[in-house]
């Protein structure tokens, strides 16, 4: 019988095929809002060695006690499929939707940005904030807090722009996502 020549690797364990590239995916996870459910999800990621780039969670349907967890993770398509299947195996999980695969989902986050400064620097900061449609939510003689929402990339640019004019602190929500159009997830 013929045997195929064996490549140089000697790993006993599966390695990601070289042809597959690691890519970010956003997963929407609908769960029963019960104690410990977030620990289950996070424990699964740490226990199985998956990455979490960002994670948000909040109850979205109060009567049904259903929460939505939005996770941005990364991996090869095989790993992403594995993450989805592993999540769906958890008992209190209703559904897992890979919104990246649904295409054109809205993926936004919110940031609160504190900027310190007086005089010209202060005016400059305010101009930048205006350019990014950021809102002033707190205002003292020597500081602003701006609120900005939108795509991660927009927030990154805003933060970068404010950095030289007195940015001292940023708090970000992480990504929340929803599909476009009338269809529910």
């Amino acid at each position: 019988m013929s045997t195929t020549p064996i490549p140089a690797s000697t790993s006993h364990y599966p390695a990601a095929p070289a042809s597959q590239k690691s890519e970010p995916h956003t997963l929407s996870v609908l769960v029963d809002n019960e104690p410990g459910v977030l620990a289950r999800v996070i424990g699964l990621f740490s226990g199985r060695g998956y990455n979490i780039d960002s994670l948000t969670v909040s109850e979205t349907e109060h009567e049904k006690h259903v929460s939505r967890i939005t996770i941005v993770t990364r991996g090869t398509p095989m790993v992403i499929e594995q993450i989805k299947n592993q999540l769906e195996r958890l008992i209190p999980i209703h559904r897992v939707i890979d919104v990246t695969l649904t295409g054109q989902a809205i993926e936004h986050e919110l940031a609160l940005i504190k900027v310190q400064g007086t005089g010209d620097q202060r005016a400059h900061a305010l101009r930048i904030a205006n350019d990014f449609d950021a809102r002033v939510v707190d205002d003292t003689t020597e500081s602003f807090v701006f609120e900005i929402s939108g795509a991660t990339e927009k927030i990154e640019r805003c933060v970068a722009a404010l950095l030289p004019v007195g940015l001292i602190e940023v708090s970000r929500s992480g990504i929340v996502a929803i599909t476009r159009g009338v269809a529910e997830m």
Binding site: T4, I6, P7, S9, S11, H12, Y13, A15
Partner: peptide
Amino acid sequence: DDRITGRVDAFSPG
């Protein structure tokens, strides 16, 4: 399982 497959990249290649 890894006790079954042995080396994965040479597991039942054809």
